[in-house]
């Protein structure tokens, strides 16, 4: 994992992350992410073939149990309070840009 991360790659990642980076940011992140990825790449030194993934199983942070609840109706925040936060609305709808041209 020692290849340099290119500005082209940074732009691709930014698109996936829905960020429009400035040219200065592209340059800054190319060098900073290189440094950080070089450091985290040390994990490649470890032999992990026989190690289990922590996100599943009894050693996961919450003890591995699925904490389920009953599907019961309960009060939720008011529709008005939620809609009041809308940057742009039309009546009781959130207004967005045209999705299909």
């Amino acid at each position: 994992m020692d290849k340099k991360i290119t500005p082209r790659e940074i732009r691709h990642i930014a698109h996936l992350a829905r960020l429009r980076l400035t040219d200065d940011e592209v340059e800054l992140f190319s060098s900073q992410l290189d440094g950080i990825l070089g450091y985290v790449g040390h994990l490649g030194e470890l032999d992990l073939k026989n190690v289990r993934n922590l996100s599943v199983g009894p050693s996961s942070p919450s003890g591995g149990e699925n904490m389920l609840r009953r599907d019961e109706a309960a009060p939720s925040p008011s529709r008005g309070a939620l809609l009041d936060n809308a940057p742009s609305r039309s009546g009781d709808y959130f207004k967005v840009k045209k999705v299909i041209e």
Partner: peptide, 13 residues
């Protein structure tokens, strides 16, 4: 695999 999956495994260690 190289990053996230490896990190989850090291986390177990």
């Amino acid at each position: 695999d190289a990053y996230y999956l490896a990190a989850q495994k090291v986390r177990a260690l």
